[in-house]
Computed example of a mutant assay.
Amino acid sequence: MEILASLRNGDHRLTKRMAAWDSVWARRVLPPVEEAAEHTKLWWAAAVIMAAGGRWRGRKAAAAGVTAMAVAELLSNGVAKKLVERPRPPKQWIPHDDVEDRPDSSSFPSGHTAAAVAFTAAVVPAWPWAGAACAVPAVLVAVQRVHSGAHYPSDVAAGAAVGLAAAALVRATPRLLIRHLP
Rank of each mutant, 00 (worst) to 15 (best):
23 S>A: 12
24 V>C: 10
24 V>N: 09
25 W>T: 15
26 A>V: 15
26 A>H: 02
31 P>N: 08
32 P>A: 05
35 E>H: 14
36 A>K: 08
36 A>V: 11
38 E>K: 15
38 E>P: 04
41 K>D: 08
41 K>C: 08
44 W>L: 15
45 A>M: 13
47 A>I: 10
48 V>C: 01
49 I>P: 08
50 M>I: 06
53 G>I: 06
53 G>A: 09
55 R>W: 11
55 R>L: 12
56 W>I: 05
60 K>H: 10
62 A>D: 01
66 V>H: 02
66 V>S: 04
70 A>I: 12
72 A>V: 13
74 L>I: 12
81 K>H: 00
81 K>L: 02
84 V>Q: 02
85 E>Y: 12
85 E>L: 14
87 P>Y: 05
91 K>P: 04
94 I>L: 06
96 H>Y: 10
98 D>F: 14
99 V>S: 11
100 E>D: 15
100 E>Y: 14
103 P>D: 11
103 P>W: 00
103 P>A: 13
103 P>F: 02
105 S>W: 02
105 S>P: 07
106 S>L: 10
107 S>E: 09
108 F>N: 09
108 F>K: 00
111 G>Q: 09
112 H>S: 12
112 H>P: 05
117 V>A: 11
127 W>Y: 13
128 P>G: 10
130 A>Q: 00
134 C>D: 03
135 A>K: 08
135 A>W: 11
136 V>W: 09
137 P>W: 08
138 A>I: 02
142 A>T: 09
143 V>G: 09
144 Q>V: 00
146 V>G: 07
146 V>W: 08
151 H>P: 03
153 P>E: 07
155 D>V: 06
155 D>N: 07
157 A>E: 00
